[in-house]
Structure formats: C-alpha cells, structure tokens
Design a protein around this nucleic acid. Structure first.
Length: 595
RNA sequence: GCUGCUGUGGCUCAGAGGUAGAGCACUUCCUUGGUAAGGAAGAGGUCAUGGGUUCAAUUCCCAUCAGCAGCUCCA
C-alpha cells in the first residue's frame, strides 16, 4: 500500500478532491483557533465533500457551532494562506506533534513508521498529510458544513469515539448551490416522509424495524411481487414456500450458528430454561430464519437428484428475520423483518456460466423497466478468508468475469471482497438523483453443498457435488420499495401506482355517475376510488394532486350527459375530455406491464 | 451495540419549574361549488415510559424505550 493511500485514504489528485481536502484542513485550522485543545485524527475527502474526525477537550461541538466555525473558516480563506509542503524525519515529526498534543497524529506516525513524513502547513496550522492540496486557501471559498456525528478512531469500536464534522466543498458557487439543492431534493423525496404523506407504511415501537404496510403500500408490494413472480416462472424458476422457524440443528449444519448467531432471533428451549440455563443451546432451541438457503438445501435433498433435473431453481419470497443492531435500523432501508425475491440455483459446474448469464439478463430486464442504470462489481477471493480449492475459485472467478465481459456489462473488480464460500457479483443501481444502492446479488457457493452433502447422479452414475448460486434481484422488497419511492419521488408509473384513477364528482348530483365510472374501472382491474366528500372541486384536485395520483377524473353534469370523462394528468396538469370507453382503453393499456 | 441529538393531541410544530397552545386532519352543521385550500361550531393531550431532585415537574437529573445523524455491523 502506498504512503498516500495509507495517510489519508480516498485522496485523488483531481482538482475538486484537492479543494475538498484543503477545505478539511481549513476547517481543522478554524476549529483549532476556536478551541486550541482540539486533537485531530483524520480528515479525508469523501463523495461531494470531506469530513474531519476530532476531539475537543471538555467540549462537545453541536450543529449550533457551525456558524461560528464557518465564520472562522471564511477568515482563514480571506487571509489567503499558502499551502506549503515540507518533510519531517520520524523523530522530528513525533516531537512536533507531541509538543502540539496531537495523540492521534502520533499514533499514525508510529503506525506508519516511515523515515520521513510529508507535512502541510498553511499559516498557523500544520497537519500530517500526504496531500495534495490547492496552492492558496482562497481556492476553497464554496463550502458548507453539513453534519455532525460520532466516529471511532480508525473505525474501531475499541478506540475512543471522536466527533466527525461533515462538509461539502466545490470549485464554484453554482456547483455548491446545485449540490445543496440536490440535498434538499433528496430530503423531500425521503421515503420515510413520502411513506407517511402517501399513506404507504408505518412503524410502531412495539415492533421496531418491522414494517406495517398500509393499503397503498400493500398494493406496491403486491404489484412488485406479482410481476416478479410471473417473470420468474417465465425464466424457469419454481416457487416454493418454506417455514420461518427452524431447529438450531439446521443452522449448525449450514454454518449460520457459528457465523451469524448474533444476528438471529432465537427461541429458547423451555426445558433448558426451566433447568436454569438461558435456553439458547438446548436440543429444542429454535430460530427464525435469517436466510432461505438452508431450507432449500433440505428440499434439494428430499430425493435423489439426476443431472437431467439440473439446473433446479427454487424461488422463495419467505419472511426473513435478522436481529440488526438497534442503531442500524432506518426506514425501509434497514429492517429486521423482510422478504427477498430470493432464489437458489443448483447447477453443475459446467452450467455456472450459462446460469449466471441468465441471472444477469434478468437483472437487466428488471432494472431497465424502472429506468435505473446499474453497474456490476465482481468480488474475488480473499486469500485470508476462503474455503475450498484455489483452482475451483480461479475457474469460477474467470467464469463470472467472462459472463460480465460477454454480456457487455459495465463492471469493476473488488478484490478480496468475496464471502468465504465463493465469489459473487453485486449490482449497484442508480436512482433518478444518481445515488447508488446495492440491490441485486449473485453469489456462487461451493461450501453449502458440502455442508449438506448435496449430490446428483451424473451420466456415468457417479455422485457429483452441485454448485449453489444464491441470487436476488430486488434484494429485499422493503428496501427496493424504499428506493423506488425516492427514485420516482412518489410519482409511481401507472401500473404500480396504488390508486391509478381518482374520480372527483363536482357535486352530489353526479355521484351516481361517478360511482358508475369507478365501478367500470374497477371491473377491468383499474385501481380507482371516488372522492365523494362534500368539498369543492378545487379542494379535491388539490388534495388528490398531493397524493400523486396519475389520473384525476373531474366529472360534472356535462360529462354525465355526454357519457364522457374529463381527465387531468399528473405529469403536466393537462386536461382532456374523452368518452369513458376511450379512457378505459387508455388506462388499461398503461396498466399492462411485464418484465 | 457505540457517540450525539430528539420524543408535547392523528400529522407538523410552539411553549414555560406551579398540572398546556397553533395550523392541518377529525366530528357536526351550512355550502352543491367546474380545475391546487368555501364558512361556522365542536371534540381531542395527565407533554414516550420508570425513577430521582423539589412545597411543586410535562419543563431539571438519571435510566429505559423509540426515532434521527453517523460509526460499527450486514457469515
């Protein structure tokens, strides 16, 4: 690892990175001026900005201090100090930072243990840093402090916890404003807010991390589930249903008990409890499943398998429970109970490429349907953490890469990132604000077939070990819906919208006609409701508009007489009067959808 | 789990050491209105939970729970 990577991770020598990194130094300088007893740790650049981890003796910075810090930073920038690089010997550097009471810098010097260190200085501020930086502080005018949080020194829970201040920094005012606007936009689209405003889902402290799907949200869930189901059948999958609770024996066999126990919800063995033990290690200790794979292994083993049956593809949308740390829970993004569009493929070695290829094609079909670009990451063997034979790994990794290449997919390799049981291809999808989310994954598993002693009989009547492929495309429904809510900002395409058409009678006189229209729509599977409140048409339009319903039908005497409807579309507020039949056809067409 | 912040009627929030207020929503009534908020009246909260300090706490302190921003974790 090069020195620069080690000193301040994430620094690249592009102008914007320099600006951001330099802004981090300026912030550190400002804070040191305001609170001289500040101990600095690391201050790297990150996407769109920077942070600095630090600790102030006897003081806890709050967001209220940001104005003060920004003001001081502006002073530093106005002074237009020069960033000057110099070198220090190991001994000098130690001495220097000792004098300045910077224990974290000293720790870093000792850890690096180099002959000489590069030092950056601007005015009265000096930092251990490999750079690079801009030449003058004036280049960092367009910044804003954004956020505050805790972070452990060197990201290790055993180390002291520091305060981390996040900021953003840009090369021009326009870019800064644009970025801040983006942040605002993202805030408006926050699925937790929209989930409430559009009545999609709710949470209760009686079931932390578990979603209550309201009728609208349930429609989203069901539609996604239904379309995915049809698609999976089309792609040769068989849907199965499996228990959610298993004896711990199963988890011992799969290896989850050893590796994943802390994240599992365990149901005590009451006999053990009555004997005074904690109930987690008895013969009748059970656990809610955190994954579907072991039950699919059992199903595979239910009978002798022939090579003629392979590949076998079990699709399972069973309920999973993972006991995530309380602090990790967040809206639909991180929950304790969820369902995946999960599947396990049992394949021969020679079928790996073809099957992975099919999976990637499915991923492409699905994400393209949502207008979401995506990118693949191939994770390869971690030499310190893998099981099985190197040759098998090498071959599998090559197979995966070949598939990516031949498919013409954009991909990167993340070395050493594979799970111990096999290499994998993760997929990052990008939403309409350009934010990436990890959803789909395709993982080869050489280990589970061994743990469960899976075999099939080949052409020569030999028992042969199959390979298992774990894969999911949406990932979890919960998280994927969260992403879609933000991606569409709640403006779901017609086929997915919980309510597709809202019928707005202008007065009670047309309620009968409104009900008739709604009934006809429902009869052809168009999700519609009548707003029969005694409110003005203005009010009805306003409120249903805010509910982001694709089509609002305004019905009055004129429409009733001519048996027409006047619809107002969500996208451009344009309106048009057409016959009820025409409207039905139009929406029915938009309602057609398949992957 | 860790650090910090937050927790007031369904929602968004204001407020003060002496047992609470606004807007929206809700209920009732009037209004039957043609493209983004018609009008009036009313009901609703022991201020997350449990301790402590105090003559007195919802307001101060501690703990717990939940949420938020991160960290860590995500075989």
């Amino acid at each position: 690892m090069s020195e620069s990577e080690f000193l301040e991770p994430g620094i690249e020598d592009t102008p914007l990175e320099k600006v951001r990194h330099s802004t981090a130094h300026i912030m550190a300088q400002a804070i040191l001026r305001l609170w001289p007893n500040t101990q600095l740790a690391f201050g790297p650049t990150i996407e769109n900005g920077f942070y600095y981890d630090l600790k102030i003796e006897d003081y806890q910075i709050s967001m209220d201090d940001f104005e003060k810090i920004e003001l001081e930073m502006k002073k530093v920038i106005k002074e237009n100090l020069k960033f000057e690089r110099s070198e220090m010997s190991h001994a000098d550097a130690l001495e220097y930072f000792k004098e300045r009471n910077q224990p974290f810098k000293i720790d870093q010097i000792e850890k690096l243990n180099l002959k000489s260190y590069s030092i950056y200085k601007q005015g009265d501020f000096t930092d251990l840093c490999s750079g690079p930086h801009v030449n003058y502080t004036k280049k960092c005018k367009h910044f804003k402090l954004l956020n505050l949080s805790g972070a452990y020194f060197r990201a290790d829970t055993n180390n002291p916890q520091l305060q981390r201040i996040y900021g953003t920094s840009w090369d021009s005012k326009e870019n800064l404003v644009k970025h801040l606007f983006q942040l605002e936009e993202a805030k408006k689209r926050d699925h937790r807010k929209l989930g409430q405003a559009l009545e999609l889902f709710e949470f209760h402290e009686e079931a932390p991390g578990c979603v209550f799907w309201q009728p609208n949200g349930t429609t989203l869930y069901e539609k996604l589930s239904e379309k995915s189901k049809v698609f999976h059948i089309k792609c040769g999958y068989q849907e199965v249903r499996t228990p959610i609770m298993f004896n711990k024996k199963l988890w011992e066999k799969s290896g989850h008990w050893e590796h994943y126990k802390d994240d599992m919800f365990i149901i005590n063995d009451m006999d053990e409890v009555s004997e005074g033990r904690d109930g987690t290690e008895g013969p009748n200790t059970m656990s809610l499943k955190p994954m579907n794979c072991p039950s699919h292994m059992l199903m595979y083993k239910n009978k002798k398998r022939s090579y003629k049956e392979l590949p076998i593809r079990f699709h399972d949308k069973g309920v999973l429970h993972r006991n995530e740390l309380s602090g990790a829970l967040s809206g639909l993004t991180r929950v304790r109970q969820f369902c995946q569009d999960d599947a396990h493929l049992f394949v021969r070695n020679s079928q790996i490429e073809e099957e992975v290829n099919k999976v990637l094609a499915m991923i492409k079909s699905i994400y393209s349907a949502f207008d979401m670009p995506f990118k693949f990451y191939l994770s390869t063997r971690n030499p310190n953490k893998f099981m099985g034979e190197i040759e098998v790994w090498d071959k599998a990794e090559k197979a995966l890469e070949d598939v990516l290449k031949q498919g013409g997919f954009e991909y990167e390799i993340t070395p050493n990132d594979a799970a111990f049981y096999g290499p994998k291809i993760d997929c990052i999808v990008y939403d309409s604000l350009g934010r990436g989310h990890q959803c789909a994954t395709t993982q080869l598993d050489f280990q589970l077939p061994i743990n469960f002693d899976l075999t099939y009989v080949d052409e020569a009547s030999n028992d042969v070990r199959p390979v298992v492929i774990h894969r999911a495309i949406y990932g979890s429904f919960e998280r994927f819906i969260g992403i879609l809510i933000e991606h569409y900002a709640g403006n779901f395409p017609t086929w997915l919208a919980p309510v597709q058409v809202k019928v707005l009678p202008i007065s009670e006189k047309v309620h009968e006609y409104a009900n008739k229209v709604q009934e006809e729509l429902i009869n052809i599977d168009i999700r519609s409701e009548v707003d029969s409140r005694s409110e003005t048409i203005n009010m009805k339009i306003r409120e249903n508009k805010m509910k982001k319903i694709p089509y609002l039908l305004v019905l009055g005497g004129k429409e009733e007489e001519a048996q027409t409807v006047t619809f107002r579309s969500r996208e451009d507020d344009s309106q048009q009067t057409i016959s009820l039949e025409e409207f039905k056809n139009k929406i029915a067409k938009e309602n057609e959808f398949s992957f």
